[in-house]
Amino acid sequence: MNVLVLVSGTADPKWPLPPRLDAEALEAHARRCAVLSPFDEAALELALKLRDADLSVHITAVVAADEGLARQAANLRLDAVYRFDERRLGPWSARAFAMALAAALGQLDRSADLVLAGREFGDLDDGSVPPLLARAMGLPCVSLALSVAADADGLWVTRQRGPFMERQRLAGPTLLAVTNDTHNRLRHPLLKNVMAARKLRFAPLAAAIADGEQPISLGAVQAYTPAPREGACRMLTGAPAEQAEALAQVLAGFGGPQ
């Protein structure tokens, strides 16, 4: 089985934003401060679990970020790692990104039986790219995937749907938009694999991008400041029992027991 994992990273929130907030500065910041997102990590871990269960599973990763992130993926001893250079695209149009990536993935010499992507892969913290990419690749998309496993009947995915969890048999190649879960936290790489990955060079996958205006452009940007709320915080002090009593009075005033 060929598993394709897509990784794009996210800007590490620990790093301050650049003082100048415009498209160029934000794109540079996103590249410079990229770390694997919890959803990228979950997608990678699901692929590794499939290979743990069946050593014939071949894992290819395509990393839409700089070389540092590609090397983090390679540290996990994947079978092949490519870099998709998204620099000319910018992150603003999920559709343009998905179309370019789908075209680039067509250059891979193995067709994927399963595509795994973090649920916020390749966009601005929402879940637009995976369903668009699935459309562009002609695959069904299963969102909020928590785990995937193979048995004699094929592949089964467990996913969250609204308040429920469900188990779904995959009828053929499918793109899973993977979410975070305690069972898919990314394992630590082995030191020998980290050392081996240091020497790797990552083959580029070119983005086929038509010159011209992008379908979505960035306009005004402002730092977000939470809206001021009513007054200063009233602190409840005293011994824990006094704090708990005062807190119970406050909370009960909001529609709970009186």
Binding site: P13, L17, L26, W92, D125, G219, Q222, A223
Partner: peptide, 26 residues
């Protein structure tokens, strides 16, 4: 159409502008 939305972990508000004739959003 101009959509204002949060990005970069909620730290910035950005305006995204498109001239698409058909635009979707939540």
């Amino acid at each position: 159409f101009v959509g204002q939305r949060a990005a970069f972990g909620g730290r910035v508000l950005i305006d995204l502008r498109t001239q698409a004739r058909c635009c979707f959003a939540t």
